[in-house]
């Protein structure tokens, strides 16, 4: 991945990474996917907006107006962009273009990372920051490069310790103490 500009969500499968300014290739499926997401968000807003209970003191535009307006805008955008992608000229262009490479990511790394994050959420309170934070750093760094786990573990523990000292000692912000909480 090489680009991180706001409109270059790094290495989108449909565009070479060096052309962030290029409009997305008119591949029908990708466009329809985005349109579906837009429409779903819009429908969610319309439903959620309709379910809001308006208090008596609501003024001229109550709490419902904005969610409903944004929802309607999104649904309209979704329909328009779907219609645009499905018009004959666009479909011909899409058919002529080479099929997009399927999204092939490194699932193993992602699974290790996700497990690390989930584990951290579960362990932060019971084990305290020192242990949970060490595991967090160690899990992510091992997922990205598993060659020197012992060094990584030491770095992880050092960082977790320093963070604990800075936050509890200097900034006075409490981090979960875990079993250490019982000592004092």
């Amino acid at each position: 991945m090489t680009t991180t500009g706001p409109d270059a969500p790094a290495s989108a499968p449909t565009a070479p990474p060096t052309a962030p300014d290029a409009p997305p290739a008119p591949r029908t499926r990708a466009t329809l996917g985005v349109a579906a997401l837009t429409g779903a968000t819009g429908v969610l807003l319309l439903l959620g907006g309709a379910l809001i209970r308006e208090p008596a003191a609501s003024g001229y535009l109550g709490p419902r107006f904005f969610p409903l307006a944004v929802g309607a805008l999104l649904v309209a955008t979704a329909l328009a962009s779907a219609a645009w992608a499905l018009r004959p000229a666009a479909r011909r262009a899409a058919a002529a273009a080479p099929a997009p490479a399927p999204e092939r990511g490194d699932r193993r790394t992602l699974v290790v990372m996700a497990a690390t994050l989930a584990g951290h959420l579960l362990l932060l309170q019971p084990l305290g920051w020192l242990i949970a934070g060490t595991l967090l750093f160690w899990g992510i760094s091992t997922a990205l490069g598993p060659r020197r786990p012992l060094l990584d573990l030491f770095v992880a523990a050092a960082l977790a310790g320093v963070v604990q000292m800075v936050f509890s000692g200097l900034l006075d912000v409490p981090l979960p103490a875990g079993p250490l909480g019982g000592i004092g």
Partner: peptide, 24 residues
């Protein structure tokens, strides 16, 4: 527009500033 809409949708979540109505 899709991304902006997601952002606006997130901004609506919670208690409404002006009326206190619970939203989304």
């Amino acid at each position: 527009v899709a991304a902006l809409g997601v952002g606006l949708a997130l901004s609506v979540v919670g208690i409404d500033d002006q009326t206190g109505a619970v939203r989304m």
